[in-house]
Amino acid sequence: MLGVERLRALCAVAEYGSVIAAARHLHLTPSGVSQQLAKLEKEVGTPLLEPYGRTVRLTAAGRLLVRRGRAILALLARAESEVSSLDSDVNGELRIGSFSSASRVVLPRAIAQLRALHPAVEVSVVADETDSLLPSITRSEIDLAVVDSWLTMPLRLPENVVHTRIHEDVADVALPSDHPLAGMERVELDALAEMPWATWRRGEAFHTWLVQTLRRRGVEPVVRYEVPEFAAQLEFVAHGLAAALIPRLAKVWVPNGVSIVPVYPALRREILAVRRRDADRPVIKAGIDALSSVFSAHVNSSHIIADTAARFPS
């Protein structure tokens, strides 16, 4: 009979590309992973890995066993989750990943609410970009991820991931207060064709979204300031150097010299809570409920802030 932990070791080597990387993920030593693989090869009676330069690659038998092994491990995870769900008590560990704006603004309140309702829950958090969080979900490195999906650049979710829509956010344009359009109730992006822009670094999702969004409005953007923080981008705007697109979720404060103006048509994104399809423990469902509750409360306060900023620019 094939050993589950040996299958897990083989799948980890396939996922991470080497014995050393697989060992790091599994919290084992490389020799421990190698021993698991040697025992698995003995059980199936054929080599599963072969030398490939300075590393190894799967044989045909290894590739077949990885496909079957992933299905077996998914079934086992689902069985464990279903057994756990029979217990209505919400307890245990909840590992959450989130993009930075949500981590700073909403997540602390959601965790505090969850812990107040369920003191036995232990929560850990890692902040990262959406593109990095999705692989962490599929590899079961985290249980729940808060990610964003712009309607003009929709997020593609892996097949084994399900999502719950917990919020809709909007991006406004930040302009220097002395800009001719700073006092408008709303502005169309094609009216800003001559403005340089401040945004995140090239290759990051928000940079790509900004460029695509402006091009759809007939503007070829000049991104002059690549700074990986919305607060820093607003400082460039405050000194009259650039415009910036700022999601309301990220707009904690607005410095003097900046006017926040709604964009027409509105630039919307969905905030999603995602989990593996086979991960439905009560603690994960409780985490989603807490996030939904806190985001719902944040919607009202965000609308108040946005209306105030539009009517009374700094």
Rank of each mutant, 00 (worst) to 15 (best):
R54G: 14
G218H: 08
L151C: 07
R115N: 01
P262A: 12
G62D: 06
I288Q: 00
V83W: 10
K42G: 06
L28S: 07
L214Y: 05
L245V: 07
R311V: 06
W253N: 13
E129I: 15
Y16E: 15
R57M: 07
E188S: 12
A60V: 13
S132D: 12
H239E: 13
D289W: 00
G97R: 05
V223C: 07
G203C: 09
G97S: 03
D280A: 13
G183F: 05
H303G: 11
G97M: 04
A102Q: 09
T138M: 05
E141P: 01
L58E: 01
R202S: 11
P247T: 03
K42C: 06
R202T: 02
G62E: 08
T213D: 12
H239F: 13
P262L: 11
E141N: 14
G53F: 08
I284R: 00
P51Y: 06
A14D: 08
A266Y: 02
V223S: 07
L73M: 08
E168W: 09
A14W: 08
R277W: 09
R277G: 02
S84H: 08
A116W: 12
A77I: 01
V44C: 09
V170S: 09
G17E: 09
G203T: 05
A242C: 07
A266N: 09
R269S: 15
P135I: 06
H118F: 01
V211W: 07
Y264W: 15
E82M: 14
R104K: 12
E270G: 05
L157S: 02
R54E: 13
I271W: 04
S292K: 05
E93L: 08
R63T: 12
S132G: 09
S314Y: 10
V173T: 08
V222D: 15
R104P: 05
T46P: 04
P196S: 06
R311G: 08
I284L: 02
R70C: 13
L214G: 04
S34R: 14
V274G: 02
R311S: 14
A174E: 03
A297Q: 15
A120E: 08
V222A: 14
L291H: 00
R311D: 12
R115Y: 00
R248E: 09
S140R: 15
F99P: 10
L210F: 01
V219G: 02
Y52T: 09
L58P: 07
F230C: 02
G203S: 10
R156I: 10
E168V: 11
A71L: 11
P196M: 07
A242T: 04
D131C: 05
E15D: 15
T46H: 04
